[in-house]
Amino acid sequence: MSDTLQTASLEADFDRVIERHDRIEPRDWMPEKYRATLVRQVAQHAHSEIIGMQPEGNWITRAPSLRRKAILLAKVQDEAGHGLYLYSACETLGVTRAELTEKLIAGKQKYSSIFNYPTLSYADVGTIGWLVDGAAICNQVPLCRTSYGPYGRAMNRICKEESFHQRQGFELLLTMMSGTDAQRAMVQESVDRFWWPALMMFGPPDVESPNTAQSMAWRIKRDTNDDLRQKFVDMSVPQAQALGVTLPDAELRWNEERGHYDFTQPDWDEFMAVVKGSGPCNAQRIAHRKRALDEGAWVREAATAFARSQREDAS
């Protein structure tokens, strides 16, 4: 059989698997573009989990009680775990974690723009759990059914853990809202800052994302940016009411006809600027990641040397 004929038949097999809503597994043949799209998406997702530890990690030493400190530590540790599940899923596509980390530090691969905003008050820990992990859940639940097996399985584990993240954040805010006026003001100020970046987490409007079609056809992606954003707004409004905070959008109101809330789009120019590197914390996040990598080098080298000497002793 000629090479082109063989590729055509492999491609037909691949298409049939996708059509049946079945999963592609690591050693299956796949189109190079499918593989490249996945590497990019899963790597950038993994980077987001790892960089995402920094804004909240900022408050671990200053959490107001041992209970809150233990919760925050567990939450940040979960995010490290999420990063590891995803890096290992990505490695099944033929890349190494070291290589991906190198690309992150060199700025050749990105992470979610939300983590380029600073955490200025302790209330931000609650707001991130409620809104940022809440938005992540909207994005992630459909990904459990993504067409690439290892990615879907990693998402399954992640989704099981995210619910704790959102609930601990909401409960933290609820506690502050039943405190003093100053505490309530802190929560409102934090929600005012994070609402718009949280809406940006779903990406630009669908008319600006024509490529979505290919990812949807391959069932890598399952919903459009606008659908996910609307879902997030609809679920956040009653939560904000229960909390007693005001979402900072004067146009936010129920639309009887659509059966959804109408809302204002976030500032997409700001989004682009943050993605391009001029967000408030871009440089700081990458510098910190690089420092952690450099300062950990001797530990990895020592472990490698120890393993080698153990092997040599045994033989």
Partner: peptide
């Protein structure tokens, strides 16, 4: 793409390694 779990990620000009 909003597909990247924790948020929108660019798809172009990103090296795959």
């Amino acid at each position: 793409s909003a597909g990247g779990g924790h948020g929108a990620i660019p798809l172009e000009g990103v090296s795959t390694g």
